[in-house]
């Protein structure tokens, strides 16, 4: 075909790539700014018991538990940790106390003994997770959270009189 053999001059309309570069550059800047390295997250399974409510243990139950009590001191902004009448100074002491207590229960053939976290509402969540972590390290699989009155719960206005049947 006449005039069909040219290569450079065949397409007389040049594509202007500059607007495309502009748009891609804008998109690049947008995604770069919104990019965030994701923190590695994990989880602790803490499935709730199916057949139990939030009631306390029955009176006849023998207490077989490893209980860690956490109190919040607002004046010093510190958490006070107690276990077996000991005020815990650091994580190592807490770990050794939990290990010791769990070893006692294992010796008594009770490896299912739970660790009960009895914490005040104001205690930072971090402190509770620390106990879960230490317990997991000791291969303890059962945890319980002690429930008190809900924070800000109202005391019922009408209470049964002492002589009334409950």
């Amino acid at each position: 075909m006449a005039g069909g053999g040219g290569e450079q001059g065949e397409n007389p309309v040049a594509i202007n790539v500059v607007p495309m570069v502009d748009v891609i550059f804008c998109l690049c800047v947008f995604f770069m700014c919104s990019f965030k390295f994701k923190q590695l997250e994990g989880k602790f399974d803490s499935w709730l018991p199916k057949g139990k409510g939030t009631g306390g243990p029955s009176d006849s139950m023998i207490i077989e538990e490893i209980r860690v009590a956490l109190y919040w001191d607002p004046s010093t902004q510190r958490t006070i940790r107690k276990m077996r009448h000991n005020t815990i100074i650091d994580d190592n002491q807490l770990e050794s106390l939990i290990t010791e207590a769990y070893a006692d229960f294992k010796r008594m053939s009770k490896p299912d003994t739970p660790v009960i976290v009895d914490a005040e509402a104001a205690v930072p969540w971090d402190e509770v997770v620390k106990i879960l972590n230490i317990s997991k390290r000791q291969q303890i699989t059962k945890f319980e959270f002690a429930l008190g009155a809900a924070p800000g719960a109202q005391i019922p206005a009408v209470r049964p009189k002492p002589d009334e049947p409950k």
């Binding site: 803490s46 939030t54 914490a119 509402a121 205690v123 969540w125 402190e127 509770v128 959270f145 809900a150």
Partner: peptide, 19 residues
């Protein structure tokens, strides 16, 4: 997913509600 400094009472309430 609770913030590390969140009050335990809030988490406790959520777990209770879930149950």
């Amino acid at each position: 997913r609770a913030d590390r400094l969140a009050p335990f009472g809030l988490v406790q309430r959520i777990i209770e509600t879930c149950g």
